[in-house]
Design a protein around this nucleic acid. Sequence first.
DNA 1: CTCGGTTTGTTCTCCCGTTCACAAACTTCT
DNA 2: AGAAGTTTGTGAACGGGAGAACAAACCGAG
Lengths: 221, 221
Amino acid sequence: MTARTSSDSVRDIPEATVARLPVYLRALTTLVDLGTRTCSSEELAAAAGVNSAKLRKDLSYLGSYGTRGVGYDVDYLRYQIAREIGVTQDWPVVIVGIGNLGHALANYSGFRSRGFRVVALLDADPERKNEVVAGVQVRPFDDLERIVKEHGVAIGVIATPAVAAQDVADRMVASGIRSILNFAPTVLSVPTGVDVRKVDLSIELQILAYHEQRKAQENVS
Amino acid sequence: MTARTSSDSVRDIPEATVARLPVYLRALTTLVDLGTRTCSSEELAAAAGVNSAKLRKDLSYLGSYGTRGVGYDVDYLRYQIAREIGVTQDWPVVIVGIGNLGHALANYSGFRSRGFRVVALLDADPERKNEVVAGVQVRPFDDLERIVKEHGVAIGVIATPAVAAQDVADRMVASGIRSILNFAPTVLSVPTGVDVRKVDLSIELQILAYHEQRKAQENVS
DNA sequence: CTCGGTTTGTTCTCCCGTTCACAAACTTCT
DNA sequence: AGAAGTTTGTGAACGGGAGAACAAACCGAG
């Protein structure tokens, strides 16, 4: 029964919960496709691979969208989560660096179907200038600022080699981009207010290697 | 001054620290390439993008490899971290699913240079059977078990569409693989003792979208 | 040898996230 | 209508990690 002031209209959702919402969204989409109308926290938690108590607490940050004794309306909950994340609207995205990974990203159908639209592919190499990938023509990197302004791009993806990544990030920030997904294996420094998320393939493998090594050691002792 | 029993020869390193060790390793490798012989926790922390107190605490789990008043010997520390992670040896890896992403992974030079060797590329599509990617011939998926046994593969990478991923994981586990890096956008269920790490491109973008949306809302109010 | 300057290793405190457990609320059956 | 069975939402306890702060240890100058 808390009073609703304008300042708390933007609720504070814990970061760990934010990271799980897309997982719930995906699980709910699967359930919708299967024709499921309603589900319990137990079922949804199983589909998302988490603890049901954690799921309920996560959802409680969004509001009370369930019904006690019944469960959640799958379609309604899906919409609420999508709205909370912000993927009911379409986010224009630019990808910089059209090597092997850039190709894969440009062709990844999961972006389009989940609220993201690749509006431009950029590469510094002039040889690639006339290449067409996934129906989008590769443009020179210098077009970045114009494209960002023209399409109102807020999110940029870096898929360049490590040495180029910081320069690309700087140019992105200068162009007005405030969220960066970085696939280059390097630490980016950006001003306050700019979000960077890092995806590093070899780091993930190294973490697995560590655990694998420990398993092997345990077998010896 | 704790006594060293055989049971604690396998030290317990916090998961959060394990996830950062590869970052330190990369930063140290960069420093070595620059010709740096020694560095302080402050410098290394800056290069790795973390707090220096956190860095020192992380390193203290491995042992006392620094010298007070001086800092760390870059090359020595790098070796110690590599040994702790287990990348002083070579880990054979198989990649299943040679689509766009599989291609990118097979060509990713960061694997080879960081202690991983792609010993086989597998795909269920017989059309790809004679394709050669990154110098490795694509083999039918049914060869999985034989290849795993032959090369002693412990780590598998799944780069298939979501629908195939669980089947692939089951076959990997049955073949003896105990660590899986999953790029397919689905939740895998595996028996206890098998490690799964997930890399999900669209989830990362959705997390960025959430924060971007909140920034936009703040500007309005 | 001693003293001042530097940097590590570690303790302590705080905060975030996870999980348990249960009251509140809803449905269904009698 | 009331009782029994379900399931949500949340209070509270617990554990782990982050960061500040400091003592211990090392170097070099005099």
